[in-house]
Amino acid sequence: MSWDPYAALGLSKGADAAAIKKAYRKLAKENHPDVRPNDPAAEEKFKRATAAFNLLSDPDKKARYDRGEIDAEGQEQSRFTGGHPFGGSAGGGSPFGNAEFRSHSYGAGGGQPGFDGFEDLFSGLFGGGGGGQRRRTATRGQDARYIVDVDFMDAVTGAKRRLSMSDGKALDVNIPAGVKSGQTLRLRSQGHPGTGGAPPGDALIEVRVKDHPQFKRDGDNLRMTVPISLTEAVEGGKVEVNTPLGRKSLNVPAGAKGGSTLRMKKHGVQKKNEPGDLYVTLQITLPETLNSQLKDFIKNWDQRDETPQRT
């Protein structure tokens, strides 16, 4: 008996696309092999949930499954009318009296060859037309859907990576600069194989971009905070900062204030035609141990009464 993809996701039949996606995310997060290694039960739940999501996230296949036209494996279902294969009673009468013939095919592994209309049906019954050979309907393979984590810097600069999918398959993925969490990358012909000589489906990869300890994304721009010494703030100078293009020198103007922001043009998200910028916020830091000279300077500074306004 065929399994129920809705039940595999913990849903009732007819659940909408949003509920299907939400349920799959939850099950994938709980049962992913990276989260629960060496757990056959979790692995089986994950595989079954992924197969269910692949079927139900396709609007056409979902509708056909709900109507009973295909099973949970995406294979065609028989659609005869009446108790007899040809619409008549099993006990007598013409087997063709009330027959309704429908084009039908079985997928690979279904155990039966298919037929297409009257020609193949009669050929199969009476041995005519090509020695009884059946024709199999060509069906494009199903798309395979995955969710993968991508390093922050790969999403900023772009990269080509070989990523391991949830079903153990490894795919070479071109990660475009500027890709964001929630976007889907399509790999042509990397999905499930087709039948009857039809092409395979595609691999649809939903991206989740990891956080970075230093950079924050702001559209195509990046933001970061860089500590500078009191001397650098007063006198100005060059400080070395990390950027997506490597270590770069940043010119700090004399008299720089803490919290002020400097822009490094085209050092943000490295889109081909128009790279973003990197905004660096300065944070003035004092030495861990204040020496006597600094203390005496502050004590005797003739502008020490110029207290900044505070809100």
Rank of each mutant, 00 (worst) to 15 (best):
D4N: 13
L9P: 04
A15G: 09
D16L: 09
A17L: 09
A18S: 13
I20Q: 02
K22E: 10
Y24E: 09
R25Q: 13
K29C: 01
P33Q: 04
P37Y: 10
A41L: 11
F46S: 09
F53H: 13
S57I: 11
D60R: 14
I70K: 04
I70R: 05
S78V: 14
F80V: 12
P85A: 11
S94G: 15
P95Q: 14
F96L: 15
G97D: 09
E100W: 03
A108Y: 00
G111W: 10
Q112C: 02
G117T: 04
F118P: 03
F118Y: 08
D120H: 07
G127E: 05
G132C: 11
R135T: 10
R136V: 10
A144N: 03
Y146S: 04
D151E: 13
V156K: 02
G158Y: 07
D167H: 07
N174I: 12
P176I: 05
V179L: 02
S181Q: 03
S189T: 04
Q190W: 01
H192T: 05
G194Y: 07
P200S: 15
V209S: 06
K210I: 01
K210L: 15
K216R: 15
R217G: 01
G219M: 08
L222R: 00
T225R: 13
E232D: 10
E232Y: 00
E235Q: 12
E240C: 01
E240P: 00
V241F: 06
R247N: 06
L250N: 04
A254Q: 05
S260D: 14
G268H: 09
Q270T: 02
K271T: 06
E274F: 03
P275K: 12
Y279R: 14
T281V: 14
T285C: 02
L286C: 06
L286W: 02
E288F: 07
S292T: 11
Q293K: 15
I298Y: 01
D302S: 12
T307L: 11
R310W: 00
